[in-house]
Amino acid sequence: MKILLAVDGSPQSLAAARYVADRLAMEARLGELRVLHVCYRVPPHVAAAVDRSVLVTYYRDITEEAVAAVRQLLDSRSVPHRILRGTGYPPVEIARYAETGKFDLVVMGTHGMGAATALLLGSTAQGVIAGSRVPLLVVCNGGGNNRGGVVVATDGSAHVRRAVAYLLRHRAHLAPDAEITLLHVSPQAQHHLPPAGRRAVTEAHDAAFERAMHGPRRLLQRAHVPWKEVRTKGDPGSQIADHAKRNDCSLIIMGSRGRSGVSGLLLGSVVQKTIAACRTSVLIVR
């Protein structure tokens, strides 16, 4: 498995590195690990006023400071790795490195989002989702429980089927021996509807549940991997995060269409709401 670990010198980056060392590198043979730090580029008028060697030294020193704790951690766990340095806008550069380097997975820590900041898709992690088709693992809360189950949020889309297929390909790294739960969230029923209307809504929800489970079921059956199915009602992002918390899950897996441009600025998708509400690491597969 070829992993790109994006770091910025924060405690959250160190937690992401610890997740890689303790889980991804230990569970199975790690093919390749690259640690990437992206420096914001010095403004052109400043760069033009100094010697190029000064800029090179500046970027190198910034990167060395940002990766020092991560390097020490990985060295102490005997995890082979190589440091990469980039310059530019971090979301764009991380996505570019992920695509051009043909990585299997990007790993990042998250600084968390409150109610206000959760309205904007401006974080580095969310920018990477929009700019790259390489799956992204967002390590929340220091990685949380290492041995809990895995919950796959399913709505029946092709994105979810790709997420399940990805899980099965890399299960030795992501979820060895973990219990897999397929979770579908139905909209909350409208209590003011007449009986006939409630029956129609129930039938529609039942049909949606079966559609949501059909593709993932077939993939898991073919791989001879056991699973269980759970159905709940309410706001999908909140319900997924709540299920993971109540069941002490170690990982949430979700499919995402990915967004760019103006639509990518709005944190309205289920994936983004889940990350905002979550204390469990989230794997996003486009």
Rank of each mutant, 00 (worst) to 15 (best):
G264C: 07
R199G: 07
E229F: 01
V56A: 15
L105P: 14
S76T: 08
T154K: 07
D206F: 00
L24H: 02
H81I: 14
R257S: 10
I240M: 06
R211I: 11
L183M: 06
H243L: 13
A98G: 10
Y40V: 15
L121C: 07
V35A: 06
R23C: 11
T274N: 11
H45L: 15
L267F: 02
P236R: 02
V270I: 11
G112F: 00
G101L: 06
H192I: 12
G156P: 01
V7T: 13
V92M: 11
L174I: 01
G131V: 04
A244G: 11
A189E: 13
T124P: 03
G86A: 14
H81Y: 13
I284D: 05
P80D: 10
S263R: 01
Q188M: 14
L4Q: 09
N145M: 04
I240G: 08
G258C: 05
M26F: 02
H81D: 05
S269E: 04
M254Q: 02
A66K: 09
W227D: 00
V151N: 12
A116Y: 01
V262S: 05
I240V: 12
S13I: 04
D104K: 04
Q12N: 10
P80N: 06
R147A: 11
L120D: 12
R218Q: 13
V282M: 09
D8E: 07
H224M: 11
P194R: 11
M1L: 12
A165K: 06
G255R: 00
S263E: 14
V262H: 07
G234Q: 08
A95Q: 02
A207T: 13
H170F: 07
L55N: 02
S250G: 14
C278W: 02
P236T: 02
V42K: 10
I3P: 14
Y166F: 09
R96H: 10
A17D: 09
D104I: 00
V107E: 03
L84R: 00
P80K: 03
R71M: 07
D22F: 00
A115I: 04
L5F: 07
L5Y: 03
C140V: 03
P195T: 08
L30W: 02
V134T: 15
A118N: 05
M26E: 04
S263D: 08
V185Y: 04
R279S: 07
S123L: 06
Q72T: 04
V164D: 01
V152L: 13
M26H: 03
A15Q: 14
I62E: 09
R71T: 05
P236I: 03
Y40P: 12
S157A: 04
